[in-house]
Design a protein around this nucleic acid. Sequence first.
RNA 1: GGAGGGAUCGCAUAGUUGGUCUAGUGCGUUCGUCUUGAAAACGAAUACGCCGCAAGGCGUCGCGAGUUCGAAUCUCGCUCCCUCCGCCA
Length: 419
Amino acid sequence: MLDIRFIRENKDIIIAAAKKKRIAVDIDELLKVDEERRVEMQSAEKLRAEQNEMSKKIAYEKDFSAKSHMIEEMKVVKEELGKIEVKLEGIMKTWQSLMLAVPNIPDISVPEGEDESKNVEVHVWGDRPNFSFEPKDHLELMLKLGMVDIERGTKVHGFRGYFLKDDGAELSWAVWNYARAFFGKRNFTHVVAPAVVRKEYFYATGHLPKEAEDLFKTQDDDYLAGTAEVPMMAYHAGEILRKEDLPKRYLAFSPCYRREAGSHGKDTKGLIRVHEFYKLEQLIISEADHAQSEKIHEEINRNFEEFIESLGLPYRRLLICGGDLSASKVKQYDTEVWFPSQKAYREASSASYFHDFQTRRFNIRYDAGDKKLFAHSANSTAAATPRLMAAIIENYQQPDGKIVVPAVLRPYIGKEVWE
RNA sequence: GGAGGGAUCGCAUAGUUGGUCUAGUGCGUUCGUCUUGAAAACGAAUACGCCGCAAGGCGUCGCGAGUUCGAAUCUCGCUCCCUCCGCCA
């Protein structure tokens, strides 16, 4: 959500932004409805002012007939006001839906482009393992080592179900614990966040209504979050923060639920795409300052990259192009890790910043002295399992099917090789 | 799951026979006076949003609807919190 005043004054910028993002919006229609909205509001307020004033006079009036006369007069005003209110209600509905359709402004550094094929590879790190044999996929390797049980996973949960066990379960704990220690040194507040979240907050993040198909819903009309971004933005919803407490830096752990309704044919085997996984997420609420937001975005993205560098996983960073950038975002990097069996990079992290687009919907402000300002927000993956585990398994595999434990995980695993 | 109580502008409270409530008071906070400085005392300010160039106006007493000329106050629905009972990790 953007500021209507900003939209009024920067129509051309919004139109260009929508074009870059391949999003259809009718700004002229919005401005027209906005004008009607203001006109109706003013006439409603004028009548209310009259009502308030007369109301006081009626209260003081001692003469019965004069009093009755005034009440009769105000009945007419009431009726008139009612008509305007009905009209205004309709206008407000249209206004709000048009407002929700207005996208955030992409950064100047966001490349032009139709869709994901135009995302730009801006950074590549690490030597892809040079196997003298045909690398196996993580599922085959993990099954052989008894790290995962898919058969019972599907028996118990259904499609995309899995059990991690023995070394697989331990690896999961090791990744979480290592991530906790790694990011903990970078000045984050640790949080374990709920995945069951009230509906209204999904609208605020923009997950609803457009991703309703991809979300699990409870019988109490709550939804299961697919990322801790939802509960963590909701955490400060409606609050006015103190400027000296910013930035708020959270490392949130939560289970994540995704129905993957739109990807039935994709990644049908293995642990790359599952309904239920676990993620540590970086989320930062900061002052309303573009330069600072940009810096935070680079920083949290680098945090993730340095994390997987320490794990020795080759990766590349993509700068997401306009056509692939969602409405709420200013800029996004996706970090993709190398999967030897697929001979391809697969997404392991996504880092974005939003300026005040999200905080406006969540109503998260801070006291900037003379005025209250909407804060800025940014988030990035810190570590998502089991996908990250799959990457570790594949990149550290040996000719005989054994897996070398990455050096940084050995203190958490207690051995050097899985066999 | 059952029974009862509650939600007021940072915190604590007043206000429920509808109309001087444009919500009072205390604490806290900020500024000022006094003081070498501090404390104390005294004085003033102190919720948020919307519309408007401005003057000013409007809205919000958990949220939403309703009754009324007029709602913090009455009615209905919802949310959350507290106490007790039951069940349970």
